[in-house]
């Protein structure tokens, strides 16, 4: 399998901020081709990647490599970009090339302000996240959040911020979902997603399939509405809850 030697990309990617290759950085260690046991610092229990990678190549063969769509239909920002300021440009790297080959139009790698992200189709999310964690060693889920675009048909962007200690690289994975649609939970991949998903549920009302204990986290249990949605009026608090539980007229 030719992919196998090539897939873990050579050292740190070219476009992540000022790439620090100071000796102290854990991930900055020049990676060996297989990228498995090289860190004196990270305690990643990573099983050697070849074993897990063998499952992917069959798929890779299937879709023909498409031309990169310059402006994907699912672009994150409905408003036409203003002339001023940088616009997201396609992101190119060995990692991207590989995934592009596998998933074709399902993913759309972009880079903006020196930061890389994937726009991924909702259906591919579990697979992509699994691959990113296991094969590409994005073993640290930095953050999980959402953004609400009420005017869009698919109202929500769900954003994972991932970091790899070995590659010293940070990427984001974005997907669009409609109101009421669920997202598969990432708790089996990163335990940290437990509270983060609860917070997203609390603030946006996005449900995560397979989350062990999906309930409100910052707001009280009986609260109505999801405050970080754009249509949640900040002046119309849940007065009912306040009246029942705190015994005051309004929280204002």
């Amino acid at each position: 399998m030719p992919d196998e030697t090539k897939s873990p990309p050579p050292p740190p990617p070219e476009n992540e901020k000022p790439t620090a290759d100071k000796p102290a950085t854990p991930g900055g260690v020049k990676s060996t081709p297989s990228g498995s046991v090289q860190s004196e610092t990270t305690t990643t229990p990573s099983k050697p990647s070849p074993s897990s990678e063998t499952s992917t190549p069959p798929k890779a063969a299937a879709p023909a490599t498409p031309a990169k769509p310059a402006a994907p239909a699912a672009a994150g920002h409905p408003a036409p970009p203003k002339p001023a300021g940088p616009v997201p440009t396609p992101w190119d790297s060995p990692l991207v090339a590989k995934y592009k080959r596998e998933y074709g139009t399902g993913i759309n790698p972009l880079t903006h302000l020196g930061q890389n992200y994937f726009e991924v189709d909702r259906s591919l999310i579990p697979e992509i996240l699994q691959l990113l964690r296991d094969d590409e060693k994005f073993d640290y889920c930095v953050d999980l959040t959402a953004v609400h675009y009420p005017k869009r048909e698919k109202q929500f962007d769900v954003v994972w911020v991932l970091y790899s200690f070995q590659r010293n690289e940070r990427i984001r994975v974005k997907t669009q979902i409609a109101d009421g649609e669920t997202v598969p939970s990432s708790v089996p991949l990163w335990a940290t997603c437990n509270w983060l998903e609860r917070e997203v549920y609390d603030m946006f009302g996005i449900k995560f399939d397979g989350h062990p204990d999906l309930k409100r986290i910052l707001l009280p249990d009986g609260w109505k509405g999801f405050p970080l949605r754009k249509d949640y009026g900040i002046l119309q608090q849940d007065n009912e809850w306040v009246q029942i539980n705190l015994g005051i007229e309004s929280g204002q």
Partner: peptide
């Protein structure tokens, strides 16, 4: 807490470093 668990739980800062993971954003991505 082991370094592996700390990473899985997204624990950062001195807590992560005390588990043996030498990672500080000031050095990693200054």
């Amino acid at each position: 807490i082991s370094g592996k668990d700390a990473i899985a739980l997204g624990v950062t800062g001195p807590v992560l470093r005390a588990s043996g993971v030498k990672w500080d954003i000031r050095k990693a991505q200054p």
